[in-house]
Design a protein around this nucleic acid. Structure first.
Lengths: 329, 329
DNA sequence: TTGTACGCGTTATCAT
DNA sequence: ATGATAACGCGTACAA
């Protein structure tokens, strides 16, 4: 609170306007007065109030980020990437967790709304697209991350989950598996739907009949991965597993060992969202790698671009996951 | 931008003051006008500008968090805990990464300063305490997290790394190890110093001479863990390793296997900062568990308490890590 | 080149 | 019970 632009003006013997001019170099100022002002600024250790400035210019140089959870590495790595490009552009980041609850998601959007963020990056959870559009209407540009609501035109950066999953499933089929269990996230996510489409397509291409008993949905946690996998193995007799997140993969792996079975002899695994630990298990686990940090960077770039030129056409960036073959299949 | 308090006032046929009264219920308002105002608010979908309000009342209900990196799970879990209690108290969280660079740390503090946060939680990296005090002087309350600058009175929540490390090292000694390698973080962190003290004490208690060649420092990454561990095994002939972070533990484990050695027969491990994957390796790794989320929650509570009553005595909360014994020693 | 004065959207004080 | 209006700290026409 202490020192304001007025104090500086007084000490330098000029008007507040002049101080503003030299600070933002928004007008010519004689060398002499510039010196006086600069010295006054330093002497008083004056820092302009970002708050007052934001109120005046109606932008905060702050962007919001809504992710499901802070303890999901995929999203925090993405946040890391976002932070990276934002910092280089003198923007700040405000992060919040939706916990994959449409209600909190809604509240967060409203909070960001009243915070006057310049833009938003979000991984939306379930939402009727109409409702989402209503919430986001005319407030600030938004780029969707990882997931994308249907029929909502906007910028987005997502993974080509379809191709990646199709490749992975085909890989399993080629190695003799026909009963492949899917351990997926909630099926209202676009990512889940994409993976399902790919799964069915790969099966059809190989002439294998689709069996809905081989598909389970849960949250993306270790627990869910463990339980659903156990179920699929015991009740559905699967010989291979495709868990849709790192934690679910971990859960599956632990469960298989608990059951006294062996990977890949009894059950093969291809997991999603590669992680350092996947090289440390025995056997090391074959996984799809999702370039989280790059996705984040790309999302931030898209958003900044949109902020600068709001009228440009919307853009969707697809990044390719990469299959890192190890020894779990 | 769109709808402001004035619009509401106009539609309701009252003054802006009255609107403010009913919104914040800060004054008596007749039932009838209250209704009119409420309806106007809903009709216009009015949301007060948090920005303008903050400028007026000189508080933002926002608190800042400075952590080394967003891709370090220990800190993001802590952030999760912080977010949790903040949300329940209608506060927002702004997260930034210092990358363990004193320079960025300094910049971030200044940014937060101009953002008018109501408080700050930070895991400080190296800093002459005097400098830190200077930066933080009189701006907002700060609680230190995980690490703590020397001779700087303030609230803090830290782990009892001394006791935990001493227990772990003693555990190793009791199992016959005398050449125990320490893979630590930079030694200007209080955590590193605490662990070193404990290490020396445990050795002395067992009558083992301290050998500085068994101690290495690095950043907390997988890479560093791998290289330093390899070094210690090859050059210093250690039979046990104590890496100070989850990622360093992972690096050590991978390195040992790459060298064709076996855990725990050739090299035993007790790692820090337990993680789900530590149960999935073969053998599962004995680790110290640090209650990150709880630490975060505690830090947030401390900060909110301080904001409410700035005059109270400073408090330092020590949380005990817990040793989760598995099969790596 | 510099100063005056208004407005950004609120809240709070003081009248009425 | 309600209304005018002055702040909060800054940027920016416009005037000088």
């Amino acid at each position: 609170m202490a020192v304001t632009i007025k104090d500086v003006a007084k000490l330098a013997g000029v008007s507040t306007a002049t101080v503003s001019y030299v600070i933002n170099s928004t007008n010519h100022v004689s060398e002499e007065t510039r010196q006086r002002v600069t010295r006054a600024v330093e002497k008083l250790e004056y820092r302009p109030s970002a708050l007052a400035r934001s109120l005046r210019v109606q932008r905060t140089r702050t962007i919001g980020l809504i992710i499901p959870r802070l303890d999901n590495q995929f999203f925090t790595e993405a946040a890391h990437g976002i932070e990276d490009v934002l910092r280089n552009n003198h923007y700040s980041l405000v992060i919040s967790e939706s916990e994959d609850s449409p209600l909190t998601e809604k509240k967060l959007i409203q909070v960001f709304n009243s915070l006057l963020v310049d833009g938003l990056v979000m991984a939306p959870c379930r939402h009727r697209q109409s409702e989402l559009r209503e919430l986001l209407r005319g407030n600030y540009p938004t780029v969707f991350f990882d997931r994308r609501p249907t029929r909502f035109e906007s910028d987005a950066v997502v993974l080509d989950n379809y191709s990646a999953t199709r490749k992975a499933i085909t890989y399993l089929i080629e190695r003799g598996h026909s009963r492949i269990g899917m351990v997926l996230g909630p099926n209202w996510f676009s990512t889940t739907r994409d993976r399902m489409r790919a799964y069915k397509r790969a099966l059809r291409d190989a002439g294998i009949e689709f069996d809905s008993a081989l598909v389970r949905n849960g949250d993306y946690g270790v627990e869910a991965g463990s339980e659903l996998s156990g179920d699929l193995i015991k009740r559905a007799g699967v010989t291979a597993l495709f868990p849709a997140s790192a934690n679910m993969t971990l859960g599956a792996f632990i469960k298989i060992r608990e059951m006294g079975l062996s990977v890949p002899r009894d059950v093969a695994i291809i997991g999603c969202d590669d992680n350092a630990w996947a090289s440390a298990t025995d056997p090391a686990i074959t996984m799809l790698y999702q370039p989280a940090a790059d996705m984040g960077r790309k999302a931030a770039e898209l958003l900044l671009k949109r902020i600068e030129s709001p009228a440009d056409g919307y853009e969707t960036v697809y990044l390719p996951p990469e299959m890192r073959i190890r020894s779990s299949v």
